[in-house]
């Protein structure tokens, strides 16, 4: 296109934001610029057709669903379920779920808000790697515990294992709830790692 102003002028003209003086100036330019005249003539009809849209009334729907937390969360966001399933598989936690949650929040935030972002596969791979790290960590802690409690009875060992399991379950539930809340949250408003971390940490499961 020879005229460098065509896109901008035609967009502004058809976008309907011009003052009368601006419109007049613009129309004068169109009268002397073949490129712009052709563009605006063609696209004005296109824009006009869009205005034939007729408002559709909604078929009956459940207006109360938006206030029912759990059901709605599952029903309206089916694609996040696999993510929660994954988080359920993350072993251990050991108070370290918070940085993880913030990191994943950031990953989701970046991935789902940028065209060239993180894919679901990459996110899954990330969570897999995390899972392996956690397993190794849990193993190390268990080994340390074995050494420390080596002389103890099998009863106290069983209690320790029970305690670890309880910790895991509690952390997992907290992590899951935070994920769900985070995904339901309008997370485009969260703009930094710090914000995400503090947001996740202040959410009550």
């Amino acid at each position: 296109m020879a005229c460098s102003e065509t896109q901008k002028l035609v967009a502004e003209y058809l976008g309907g934001e011009m003052t009368v003086a601006q419109r007049t100036a613009c129309e004068y330019h169109f009268s002397v610029c073949e490129d712009c005249r052709q563009a605006v003539d063609g696209l004005a009809g296109t824009a006009g057709r869009l205005l034939h849209w007729e408002q559709v009334t909604i078929p009956d729907w459940d207006r109360t669903a938006s206030t029912a937390e759990e059901v709605s969360a599952q029903k309206t966001r089916p694609e996040v379920v696999p993510l929660n399933t994954r988080s359920r598989q993350i072993p251990g936690g050991w108070q370290s779920w918070l940085p993880l949650a913030a990191t994943v929040a950031l990953a989701v935030f970046l991935g789902w808000n940028q065209d060239s972002g993180l894919s679901e596969q990459e996110l899954t791979a990330y969570l897999d790697a995390f899972e392996q790290r956690q397993q190794a960590q849990t193993q190390r802690i268990m080994e340390t515990a074995m050494q420390e409690f080596g002389d103890s009875t099998s009863d106290s060992m069983a209690q320790l294992v029970e305690w670890i399991q309880a910790q895991r379950t509690a952390d997992m539930q907290q992590l899951e709830a935070s994920f769900q809340q985070m995904l339901n949250h309008d997370y485009q408003a969260l703009s930094s790692m710090q914000q995400l971390a503090s947001w996740v940490s202040t959410q009550e499961p």
Binding site: W53, Q55, V56, T57, I58, P59, W61, R63, A65, S66, T67, E69, S72, A73, K75, T76, R77, Q181, N184, H185, D186
Partner: peptide, 30 residues
């Protein structure tokens, strides 16, 4: 109605527009 019509035009599908409607008001309420 505004949100639903937005959804119809953006998704091109009645089902997706209804899902979007639910999601928008769910998120708004939250």
């Amino acid at each position: 109605t505004r949100v639903y019509n937005f959804g119809l035009r953006m998704t091109g599908s009645v089902d997706d527009a209804q899902d979007l409607l639910q999601e928008v008001f769910f998120s708004a309420y939250q």
